[in-house]
Computed example of a mutant assay.
Amino acid sequence: MQQRKQEKQIVRWWYQPKLVLPLWPLAPLSVLFTWVAAFRRGLYKIRLKRRTKVSLPVVVVGNVTVGGTGKTPTVMGLVRLLQGAGYRPGIVSRGYGGEGPFPQRVDKNSSPLQVGDEPKLLAELTGVPVVVAPKRVQAAQMLEASGEVDVILADDGLQHYALDRDIEIAVVDGERGLGNGWRLPVGPLRESRRRLRKTQWVIINGGQPATIAGLKLKRNEQAVPMTLTSVGWRRVSDGAEIDVPDGESVLAIAGIGNPERFFNFVMEHGIDIQETRVFSDHHAYSAQDFYDVSNEVPILMTEKDAIKCRSFARPHWYYLQVSAQFPETFKEQFLRAVQQASGRELEQQQQGVKA
Rank of each mutant, 00 (worst) to 15 (best):
V59W: 01
Y161G: 04
H282A: 08
I273Y: 04
I46D: 13
L48S: 15
R47W: 13
A38V: 07
L26E: 05
V224S: 02
S55E: 15
D305H: 03
P188L: 08
W317I: 07
A223S: 14
L113I: 05
V60N: 09
D155E: 07
R314M: 07
P22W: 08
V130M: 01
G90L: 10
R94D: 01
E148V: 00
R40H: 15
R183F: 12
A85W: 12
W14N: 05
L43V: 13
L196H: 06
Q141P: 09
H160R: 12
P119H: 01
K198G: 09
Q288E: 13
E99C: 08
G77P: 01
F39Q: 10
R194E: 08
V151S: 00
A133W: 02
K5I: 07
L153D: 00
R105Y: 09
G207H: 05
D117T: 11
Q222G: 02
V244M: 14
V322F: 02
R80N: 12
K49M: 15
G100I: 10
K218G: 10
L228K: 05
R176Y: 15
A324T: 03
L78A: 03
G127L: 07
G157E: 05
V353L: 08
R193P: 04
Y15N: 06
G206L: 04
W24Y: 07
V20K: 14
E7C: 06
K53W: 12
G67I: 00
N258H: 14
S192K: 03
L184R: 03
A306W: 12
T276Q: 07
I242H: 03
R105M: 14
V64G: 01
R94W: 03
